[in-house]
Nucleic acid binder design. Structure first.
Lengths: 275, 275
DNA sequence: GAGTGGTCTAGACCACGCT
DNA sequence: GCGTGGTCTAGACCACTCG
């Protein structure tokens, strides 16, 4: 067989580093150096155990490590595969009509062609294929979470209009989002009848509340189990969480939106203008 | 004993959901509902095994799940604890006149005061407590990685000046960064002698290459093992990866910087101005 | 020394995808 | 049916922290 040529034969059980980590190290570098290319099948747990002379559980631990690093996918009944890179979509959050025009950006492979983001993208006909559908999951008045209330300059527990929705592309949920709008503004704008997020911008404008300043906060974390299910996330894939605070011309914050999406699939793009 | 009052007594081994996930579910909701507060000690693996009538390995699997979700920390010899939230710093990347700030800004509508970022920081006295030290780890001419070359509009494999450094705060490495500068520009600006990232901006300005446009791309992923070590990351903590493309007034990209930091500790703040 | 998590073994049965 | 990963058991020894 001599398969040992690919994955070096020996692990040192007396070394500082635990055996399963040593095996993971070897597999990892084999992946990174291209010995196993994207989509390729790795040795089975049984094979690894035999090759390194360890119990199956130990070989499995190595595999689990790589899964949690997002490097491989395990499929029951089939085996473990080197994870193939997901097509990445770059989102350029825009205000109402942001700069960064059709700017053929020097960004190498990105041509996702447009910037119709799951949240707050420009309105108006998005390119054919990038149509996303929005499904409202909740629409109600409720008391604002503490952090949201603070951002809106409201007392803790104040009522806000909460609109929650999911944005899907081809039947796959891509973004889970919620918008929290000041009650007074929401009522005036008739937002109670507006379902998806993007549509709300039109309603706000129509009611005279033009948003002229947006502060966006980007963070990342591991998904909750709910998020992992809804967004169909593999193990070892974090989420991006985008929190927006929308302000009107008088610099008053009137709305906070929070959206969550796969960090494997989305990146955020910002242009920092000259000061 | 009746400890079963806190963690419900029974798990159903015939249910669809595996036992270790059921245990994890119970612990997770106990944590989220505050039964176990931040920093608090969870039941030991042995206790969990006894309480649910399962093998230790099964109880341990539940614990491992929560660790990978970033909810708890396990300490050998002590036990598992609910992870305490890290103080979060919000970075406001800015054009030139700004840099590293740590977020003294109280989350609320972020003030427009000063701004600092881990990359491209303002020089001159930064706020007392926020001093970061920069240690150059590499400084050399090398051929650009494919993606970087593309971003700079250079042919694949073209030479660039690579400056790599780590930014530390109180002896803890907080950011790992690299800057790739076009060779011609770097030479003209004398960058070969400049060590940390922030300092390079001054050199560029001094040599007449004023950066007027910055495109910043924010992504997140699980850390490599190297990154996890250097940044001292707990399991279940992703990293934010910030890629910057710096352009001069004529819109030519002259430099790409990439920085990596704990997503648990840092968030990015952007203001989307009115156009 | 007692208790904890970290590692490892050598089995077992199951659910799943394939042929 | 066969091989895969997913789960689980019942042990074992180790490294670590604490009193």
């Amino acid at each position: 067989m001599q398969e040992g040529c690919l994955l070096a034969r020996v692990v040192d059980s007396r070394a500082d580093r635990p055996v399963h980590k040593q095996i993971a190290d070897r597999l990892r570098s084999a992946i990174k150096s291209g010995v196993f290319g994207p989509g390729e099948l790795l040795p089975s747990e049984h094979e690894l155990a035999a090759k390194y002379g360890v119990a199956r559980g130990t070989a499995r631990q190595a595999i689990v490590l790589l899964r949690n690093e997002g490097l491989i996918d395990a499929v029951q009944g089939l085996g473990s595969f080197v994870r193939e890179p997901e097509p990445v979509q770059r989102l350029r959050p825009g205000g109402l009509s942001h700069g960064l025009e059709t700017g053929r950006d020097p960004h190498d492979p990105p041509p996702d062609g447009d910037r119709h983001g799951p949240v707050g993208g420009r309105l108006g006909a998005p390119p054919e294929e990038l149509m996303m559908s929005f499904a409202t999951t909740q629409l109600e008045k409720a008391s604002a979470p503490a952090d949201v209330a603070a951002l809106l300059g409201l007392p803790a527990g104040a009522d806000v209009l909460v609109r929650s929705w999911e944005a899907s592309y081809k039947d796959n949920v891509r973004t889970i989002a919620s918008a929290y709008t000041r009650s007074d503004i929401a009522t005036a704008a008739g937002l109670i009848d507006v379902e998806s997020g993007p549509a709300a911008y039109l309603a706000l404008i129509a009611s005279g509340h033009r948003i002229t300043r947006i502060i966006e906060e980007v963070s990342a974390r591991m998904p909750t189990t709910t998020e992992a299910q809804r967004l169909d996330l593999a193990p070892g894939v974090p989420v991006l969480s985008i929190q927006r605070v929308n302000h009107t011309a008088d610099r008053r914050p009137i709305e906070v939106t929070v959206s969550v999406m796969s960090a494997e699939r989305y990146r955020m793009l910002y242009e920092l203008g000259d000061d």
